[in-house]
Design a protein around this nucleic acid. Structure first.
Lengths: 191, 191, 191, 191
DNA sequence: GATGAATGAGGGTTCATTCAT
DNA sequence: AATGAATGAACCCTCATTCAT
């Protein structure tokens, strides 16, 4: 209707798609719905995106890039490794809570395999970040001596678990502080 | 071809569906595929299952019931709380590795919302089991004093994270021992 | 289950089919339903009837034969033509009210064309009966001089209209007496 | 092929459906047939009609609205009640002869219950029209004193009977004049 | 750039009928 | 005579994608 720039149109469609996917999941949402949300014609979407999958993938990429950047900015200049781990956990939990619907939509109907490349790229970045922190923690003596590669994987696994639990039970009591403490100390009173 | 008992037919279909869902996801698999895998006609499936969803749900329920039972049997008679937590982690990790395809299939295309009741029932059982162990650990003094309810949730979140990571990166190095140690001790050298 | 004679089985199935067709119409009723109603297997039905249509046709034939016979018996020995016409109307209206569900079922989903031969045979008999009465009425002078063939058709049409109206609006006020009076004024020389 | 206006497409589909339903009845006709008749794709039909039933119902409504209007226009300005009844009969008989196939199709496979609301609306209109004429006839003294409500029902039943008979035996000799005379003898005080 | 009518393959599901037992 | 599991064609309907305008 309006004279829009290509960039505007694209982000307009992305917002419309976001809404549709959030509400109905990937295959529950159809192109007509998205077009309606975007105040556009169905055909119009195909001027900006190759197909439905491309549209969803773009959405996913945007989100993960944003999260990546947030994490990196959050630990920039933080010297205390424990604090850095805490920040990473905090950012991830906040992000999960904020974008719950979207993350679920991207996994509903398509599952983990969907957009695997984009996800892998994100995971790689995330792992590097955490690994750096742990390495530093071991170097400073704050953290246990350990197989850094494995512990990194474990920490990321734990992080994922926190995120997943927030997605599954959004209303459950689940404090960032509790998660951080746990990740840093575990269950046992004495070692 | 129609010489099978009803029970045979049912499990025959379930296996065929498992294969189809594992390879193509829930909506990628179609009833014709499943019928072919089962060396049956399409209509035959509907003698044993109300519809596609029912078929997949049955598969899910079977799996989760089995896992539930395994966990319960594993901690039976174990008095050391740390050991019990270790067993729970071990069972879950082994299970994830063994049934990776199936679990993914049930979440691909349909996502977490699918079979939510069956899943909730499982989660409830799992939480009760873990809570009991932690309570006991706190009572015996093996574990920190803590908000048992919250820590239970966190431990389960961690558990989920381990499982999720195995699903996402099946070939990654990821030892049960490492996970257990981490869950029990965390990262920090001293508190 | 029981040892039944072939005749028993047949009528047992017919009753079961009648119930099913009455409740769900021709295509709404399925063979499994009928088999259940008859406490039989699906395959069993095919020992007695060639197929679903044959089953329904047999039902139709039974009903129409019964009605035919009732009409014939009713006018037997009645000498007054007006009274005879009244009897015919009465029998038909009563029959429509009594077997409403069945008649509707036979026309629901299949319509007038269904069982056309059986119906035609019935219509022929009915027409002959009415024609005979009218001819007699004209001969005795009770009825107007008229084109007997056409008036017969008209009287039958009127009769059908009464029946149809009862089928369409079973609860509507619609007296046999009113119908007879109306129809006879069309026939009687003097009132 | 896609150069038609929406209105053209709709009526194009309606014609195609009419042909299909007339030839094969409601459930005998399938969407693919209709699409072929309309030189369209199956999906195209669903742009204009919610489903098969909606398509058939629209057809039915169109027909009955047309007949309703015809009847009303026919008696407009006619002062003689007997003549008015004659016109109503004439219009209905002509209509039945002209649209025989269509009317049959709408009742074949689905029966009277199909589109019951649309039909009821038509019947209501028809009854009001006839009732008004009879009331007027009684007032002017042309018609017998009578229970107007009941006689209206009877006249409509008779009318239905004429229509039904034309549907059942289209080639039968069945004059409008004969029908009117017969029906009017039931109503007129003097012949 | 933008439209939206049109496509048509493919989906899940039903059910009259068959046949090995 | 009787069973009921099995068949498979056919049904209605959906929707990502295309293309004439």
């Amino acid at each position: 209707m309006n004279i829009r720039s290509a960039k505007d149109s694209k982000s307009n469609i992305l917002n419309a798609a976001l809404k549709a996917f959030s509400e109905h999941g990937y295959s529950g949402a159809n192109m007509r719905m998205i077009a309606n949300n975007a105040n556009m014609s169905v055909g119009g979407i195909y001027l900006y995106f190759r197909n439905k999958e491309d549209l969803c993938l773009t959405l996913l990429k945007e989100r993960l890039d944003e999260l990546s950047e947030k994490m990196e900015r959050a630990v920039e200049g933080v010297n205390n490794p424990a604090e850095a781990i805490g920040k990473v956990i905090k950012i991830n939990l906040e992000y999960a809570r904020k974008h719950r619907e979207i993350i679920l939509a991207q996994n509903r109907d398509k599952g983990f395999a969907f957009g695997i490349d984009v996800k892998k790229k994100f995971f790689r970045k995330q792992r590097k970040l955490v690994e750096k922190i742990i390495k530093e923690g071991v170097r400073t003596g704050d953290f246990f001596e350990c197989n850094v590669a494995e512990v990194t994987k474990i920490v990321i696994a734990v992080l994922r678990g926190f995120v997943l639990s927030i997605l599954l039970e959004p209303d459950g009591f689940f404090s960032v502080k509790g998660c951080c403490e746990f990740a840093l100390r575990g269950l046992l009173r004495s070692v």
